[in-house]
Every structure is written in C-alpha cells, then in structure tokens.
Simulated assay, not measured.
Amino acid sequence: MLVAERRSRIMAEVRRRGSASVSELAGSLGVSEMTIRRDLDSLAADGLLDKVRGGARTPRGGDRLEPDASARARQNRDEKAAIALRAAELVEPGMSVGLGGGSSTWALATELRRIPDLTIVTNSIPVADVFARPDRADEPYTQTVVLTGGVRTPTDALVGPVAVASLEHLHCDIVFLGVRGMDLTAGLTTSNLLEAETNRALVAAGARAVVLADHTKWGAVGLTTIVDLNEVALIVTDSGLAPEAQESLRAHVVDLWVAPLTVPAATSAED
C-alpha cells in the first residue's frame, strides 16, 4: 500500500469514529504500530488530526478536516452557481468532459445536463448521479464514465491508483476540477493526498484544464499541491474575489474569468 493511500485511510477512519488507537489502525491496515506512529506524527504536523496518547482523534472543532459532500454543497451556493453558469459556456455538444469531485463541479454538472451528446468522465458519485439516464425521452442522454478508485473521500469522490491508471488511457476535450485552496506559492491544493494524485491525472487527460474556485478559496492552502497556478488553462471564480486578489492571480495564471453574482440583462463580453 502506498504511503499516501495508507494515510488517507487513517484520516478516513479517525474522521469516521472520532478517534482511533495505534493498535486498531495497525491491525486494520496490516502494518506495524511503528509505521502508524510515524504516519500520525506526519498527519498531526499538518494539522489534519490530533495525536493523543495511544492514538489520534479529530482536531478540536474538526475545522481542518475536509467537510463532507452535503456540508460543502451548502457553502457559497450563489457563488458556485454563478461560476458553473460561466464555465458551462466552454462546453459544446459532442465533447468529452472530465469532472472531478466536489460541490463546484457538481454545480457545473447540473448546468451541463441540458447539453446533448456529452461523454462525462468523472470519479464523483454525486456528479455521476446528475447524469443518470433521463426519465423523459426528450431529455438529452449523456454517457457517463465513472472511474473506480477504491478509496472514497468525504465528498464522495473515488480516488487512488485504479482511477489514475484508468485516466492514463482517456482523452477529454476539457476537464474541470475543484480545489481546497489557491495560493501564489502553494498553487492549487487539496486536503486529500490521493485526490491530488487523481486530479493530476485528470488534468493530464484533458486537452484543456479549468479550475472552479469561489473567492473563499483564495489564500487557503490544503495539505498537498495538485498543480501550480500556471499549469491550468483557466480559473473561473466569482466577483466576491477582491480586485487586488484578481490582479495577483492574473499575473500568475494563463487566464482568469470572474463570474458576476448577479447576471445582468445584457452580459458583457469581458470577464
């Protein structure tokens, strides 16, 4: 088992139970207690859990752990809807579209459902559900490819070596992913080590990579970097991002679109 996968499973187990002992984790993962202690030291140093005598527990307040899918879906709904509406302009009938996990890509999926003849490649269970076979014959049917990754994140994304291996053989016209944070130094980050690996493979599978990130992601830094800011073709954010932050981003990214929170009657061609 890869170190990243083992540590992701440790975090998932501690999150699920609230706490776990070294012996319990060693037994469930089939490794030595010394290995588990080293993993806990590393995860505690990154603020992802609290190390206690004989084991680990979720951080006080739990605010450093990744929120689950339902909690994230409730955060910044208007901003994510505006971003999704703007990003949907990039997608045309007949395209193959990659969608990573997260609430921002889920919001985009709801916009893309009305576009016919798409092939959707996703490792997200909620996104795949959006593109289920339509109930009415007059609704567009979209083919969905779900990548089975073996490890399920709190946002119901399937990540891991199987997903990465599958993506190596796929070619998308465009891919969209959400992030935990965007920072000039750390780049585009996530809180899940295996998700970062899977998202890197998703970026590599696309002819064009687009990041969906509402303004609250600016300055936030997750556990690990997915890619640097200039490695994606476009970042789509919302007008809640401060002008000085927009200026900083434009100096480091290939392209930046800022979606208005209130769409005017006549939309300007400028971003």
Rank of each mutant, 00 (worst) to 15 (best):
M34R: 10
E79F: 08
E89N: 05
R16L: 06
Q75H: 13
L25T: 03
L49K: 08
G55A: 12
R16C: 02
I10H: 02
L25A: 07
V3I: 15
D46P: 05
V31E: 07
R77L: 07
A4M: 14
V52W: 12
G27Q: 06
E79L: 09
R53L: 11
V97L: 00
A73H: 09
S42Y: 15
R9V: 04
V3W: 15
R16G: 04
K80T: 00
A20F: 01
S32E: 06
M11F: 04
A73M: 07
S8E: 15
A82C: 03
S96L: 11
R60C: 08
A56I: 07
E33L: 11
R77H: 12
L2F: 14
V3E: 15
I83R: 00
V31K: 10
A82W: 00
A56H: 11
P67H: 02
R60G: 10
S21T: 15
V91C: 01
G18N: 08
L2N: 15
A44T: 11
R72I: 02
R37T: 09
G94Y: 05
L65P: 05
A73N: 06
E92P: 01
D46M: 13
G94D: 08
G30I: 12
A73P: 01
L25W: 04
R9W: 05
A56K: 04
E89T: 04
E79R: 14
R16Y: 02
G61Y: 13
D39Y: 01
L65W: 09
M34V: 13
P93N: 01
A4Y: 15
S42N: 13
S96N: 10
S21A: 12
S8G: 14
A45P: 06
G30P: 09
V31R: 10
L65F: 11
R38G: 05
L48M: 14
M95S: 03
L65I: 14
E5F: 08
K80H: 03
E66T: 11
S28E: 10
A71H: 04
G30V: 12
L25N: 04
V3R: 15
A69L: 05
D46Q: 14
D50E: 13
G94K: 05
A69K: 02
P67G: 01
G61V: 12
R77G: 06
A84L: 01
R74F: 07
R7W: 10
E33Y: 11
R38Q: 13
R77P: 03
A81D: 06
L40T: 02
D50P: 06
R64W: 13
G18S: 08
M11A: 09
S21I: 08
L40P: 01
E92C: 08
R17D: 06
V14Y: 02
D41K: 15
R17I: 04
M11H: 02
K80C: 00
I83C: 03
L65G: 07
A84P: 00
L29N: 04
D41C: 12
G61C: 12
A84E: 01
L43D: 03
R86N: 00
D46A: 15
T35K: 10
V97S: 02
A69T: 00
E66K: 10
G94N: 09
R17C: 07
R38K: 15
